[in-house]
């Protein structure tokens, strides 16, 4: 089972849910920016949730299927076409040999995910198939996909085969799809929930007020490592030296220029800038779907709310998992 890259688009990489257990060695986590979308895509084709898929950024990616395939496309709607016809999203799709899948332009969101039944037959480096671009390891030869690349898919398991044959026998494909509305928000102007960061109290009163009252704009200097925001300048009450310490995806740090940076999937393992806020894990998928020029407002919630939102999203994912199983059995 092989897929050929006819055009890599802006940035297409192989990502799973990340490389854990090596941060103490300075090895970054990487992985899908929008983890919920990748998890659902995998479930739709019968993979394990943490199998690697393709992360497609904004537009341009074009793939040729050299065999019949079972895939699922989730994440942002990047106007995916299969042989020129609009592809179904958030559902299993049977793709015939010789078909061409193309992502034209973002309609909603910023990143689409494509899961392939059987996943990718690329080696696990330090327990993960995620591409770590800076170190040149993982994914497809440690780099973003390029024109002409041939990517091998893995062996299909029983679940994959069951959905593969079911999807292959459906004329016109499945009409049902996963309702993602409780999971991810694709709006390009939205409120993101945060808890106060560890150094929040170090900022001056104006800055504390501005963080929760003014909009911030995602700049074009935003990538898998972090989103640089523009808006009111945020300042410390007085300078102090912060020693480098651990950070997470969703840490909002403020460098000396006063413009916030949201740390994302390819963040470094530690950071030395003051942390003004921490975005809820439950809202990180929505952040991953923001495009440059998107507008965000920050809203404060308590730590307990952040935890219960985390669990609430996991319950939604459990329901989605159950729903997919029922649809495939009786749908």
């Amino acid at each position: 089972m092989t897929v050929k890259v006819l055009h890599p688009g802006l940035l297409t990489t192989i990502q799973d849910l990340g490389r854990y257990g090596f941060q103490s060695y300075g090895v970054i986590v990487s992985g899908a920016m929008d983890r919920y979308s990748l998890r659902v895509a995998n479930l739709l084709v019968g993979n394990q949730e943490n199998e690697a898929g393709l992360e497609i950024t904004l537009f341009g990616t074009t793939l040729l299927f050299e065999n019949d395939h079972l895939i699922a496309i989730t994440g942002g709607d990047l106007h995916a076409l299969i042989d020129g016809k609009k592809a179904g999203l958030w559902r299993p799709i049977f793709v015939k040999k010789g078909s061409i899948l193309q992502f034209k332009t973002p309609i909603t969101g910023c990143r689409a995910y494509v899961a392939f039944a059987g996943g990718f037959a690329v080696p696990e480096i330090m327990g993960s198939k995620s591409t770590y671009l800076k170190a040149g390891i993982g994914g497809f030869h440690g780099r973003a996909l390029q024109k002409g690349d041939l990517i091998e898919c893995g062996e299909m398991n029983k679940d994959n085969q069951y959905i593969f044959s079911k999807a292959g026998s459906m004329v016109g494909g499945f009409s049902w799809f996963v309702d993602y509305s409780q999971l991810i928000c694709f709006e390009q102007e939205q409120t993101i929930r945060v808890i106060k960061g560890l150094e929040f109290d170090r900022f001056d009163d104006d800055s504390k007020r501005l963080l929760f009252s003014q909009p911030f704009t995602v700049t074009t200097q935003s990538d898998r490592m972090g989103y640089r925001l523009e808006g009111p300048v945020l300042q410390l009450e007085k300078e102090f030296e912060l020693l480098s310490e651990g950070v997470t995806q969703g840490t909002v740090q403020i460098p000396p220029n006063g413009n916030p940076i949201i740390l994302m999937a390819d963040r470094q393992t530690t950071g030395g800038y003051p942390k003004m806020a921490q975005i809820l894990s439950a809202d990180l998928a929505s952040v991953a779907q923001l495009r440059p020029k998107a507008k965000v407002y920050f809203k404060e919630v308590t730590h307990e709310e952040a935890e219960s939102e985390f669990l609430a999203k996991e319950r939604i994912l459990d329901e989605i998992k159950m729903g997919i199983r029922l649809k495939l059995q009786y749908g």
């Binding site: 560890l198 894990s281 730590h303």
Partner: peptide, 10 residues
């Protein structure tokens, strides 16, 4: 011990 978001602590 301080919370670092909802999935980590320091």
């Amino acid at each position: 011990i301080k919370p670092l978001g909802d999935s980590a602590l320091l």
